[in-house]
Design a binder for these strands. Structure first.
Lengths: 216, 216
DNA sequence: TCAAAAGTGTTCTATCTACACCCATGT
DNA sequence: ACATGGGTGTAGATAGAACACTTTTGA
């Protein structure tokens, strides 16, 4: 990475990459094989070169780790002092991805892996707080936006959607009321198709009416 | 200001300082007497030295411009490319202040001054968008927090509170419903005192039950 | 007694919550 | 026929919206 002009602090972009896998909310972490904070898990990130857009830098981190592009990405918070030593700044984003589209890098050094957000280890650079902040933000936005589209595939059943919501807000949602609310919000619509998943009635499939962020 | 270690971009903190004056929402701007962006109005800010807390740096800008300390301050957004030339980053905060506590610097070079948020001029560094973002955020938070305490003095009338809310959300609020809602939220309480302001019935005085941020 | 702002309740409507049974399918 | 998850409606409670007159004061 080319050194930047100026004489300011080191700036990094880091990304809280969230996905719902088997009904559990997960975050993507990498393992630090060298100092600082050796042997701790950390959020993926990279140094910002000062040339490209900040958001483009975050997108690049996301794509590098997951192979995913064009998903939901939003700025979260900017933190000083990544570590205690040199002056530094971390601009944190969060991203929502659909796990089946993800191909994790397979690298000895970093071992990118999904970790359930419940029961995280102590992270490098005190990044646990950023994850909490991201989850809280997503939970709040589920109520008045359609950002769940970032977490689900093109087509999905009501069960998928329901599980996704419950994984994030960690409270049970009444199935009938949930269905009514989603439909009355108008963020999803039936595709007409169905999906059979076992020895029982097939589920209708839905899609998001828009895959751009929409506020209600 | 001491140069920082590292070879990263220049980092600045800037602050959107908001106050309600005579029923109108105002933002504090400084006038740029030299390049870049000479002769345009801009948000006040300063270079971050990489040593102190980011938030402390923003607090220092706020205090330098207004003499006010210990008011409501919150991180807003981080933007790349303050200008088109050298790599740079601006970490924006917004602050809520009570105008009677403010003593603006009197400097020929910068001329800090309040500007009504309606009818702003084109600002340096395309900072108009940051102001819009700050106003939108405050407006949203009025609904579920007590942050209005940052905009009002220790004691105030319902009229003061009502005008403050209307100045930010730019929509009329029914007086009776507004009063009920504020009281049922429990964020304010009567002091017992009253204030006479003219040839009419005196108004009861209220205070915020807490002057720390409270979420409902 | 008049002008000017302060203070106060009720009705209606929309939204949210709680809750239990039948349906379609594969084995 | 049975096991499994999919799909549906109603009644009660709560919160929000609309709306107009009386009170207190100084001039």
């Amino acid at each position: 990475m080319a050194p930047t002009a100026g004489s300011g602090p080191v700036v990094a972009t880091i990304v809280v990459i969230l996905a719902v896998r088997e009904g559990q909310l997960h975050v993507l972490l990498v393992h630090r094989s060298g100092p600082p904070e050796q042997d701790l898990w950390a959020l993926p990130g990279g140094r910002w070169d000062g040339v490209e857009d900040l958001e483009a830098a975050a997108t690049r981190v996301l794509e590098h780790e997951t192979g995913v592009t064009d998903l939901y990405l939003e700025q979260l918070f900017t933190k000083d002092s990544l570590d205690g030593s040199a002056p530094s700044l971390a601009v944190a984003y969060f991203a929502l991805v659909e796990p089946s589209t993800v191909r994790l890098r397979q690298e000895e050094a970093w071992r990118p892996a999904w970790h359930p957000v419940e029961a995280l280890p102590e992270l490098a650079f005190h990044n646990n707080a950023l994850i909490d902040q991201a989850v809280a933000r997503v939970g709040a936005k589920l109520e008045y936006t359609n950002i769940a589209y970032g977490l689900l595939p093109e087509q999905f059943t009501f069960r998928d959607l329901h599980e996704t919501y419950e994984a994030i807000i960690r409270k049970p949602l009444d199935r009938r009321n949930f269905r009514k609310r989603m439909l009355s919000m108008g963020i999803i619509e039936p595709t007409g198709g169905t999906r059979r998943e076992g020895a029982h009635r097939p589920a209708k499939l839905y899609r998001f009416t828009s895959r751009e962020p929409v506020f209600l």
